[in-house]
Amino acid sequence: MIRHFVRPGDFVAIILVLLVAAGLSFLLIPGLFGAAGQPTEVVVRSLRAGAAGEVVKSVLLPDDTEFFVAGETGGLYVEVEGYQARVFDADCPRRLCIGGWMDSVGERSICAPNQLVVELKGEPGERDFDDTIR
């Protein structure tokens, strides 16, 4: 039946169509070929009353910078290096938010007293986390 509709020369066209579709997928669907798992942004959100998760600071990655974000008990000092970030100082009573480098999509540091969340955004990779617990 298919012979009635598709001539031998059409197979060349079909292969061309396949190549074009693959090219379009590559260009239009970021993350399909390789970007998954690499953080693309550091985002700081405020959870204070009325802010409801509002982004108060964001830095596109890669970058090398330090910044301060004001919070309820003072604020947080964040360092960014390449595709990773960390809270390196904080104005809060117990300073539990100060920690090592975060380098996976979904990793985050929570400062409850300051009501701030620092997190790495991006296309999750297979080994990234939806959340962390401690």
């Binding site: 960390r86 920690g99 090592g100 996976s104 990793e107 540091s109 986390f129 939806d130 959340d131 401690r134």
Partner: peptide
Amino acid sequence: TAPEGRLWRVGLEHPRRAGEVYAA
């Protein structure tokens, strides 16, 4: 499950190395 139909994946942070995930 998570949106892709995979299982939700949770990292366990090390008690002495804040921010460092030792297991999932």
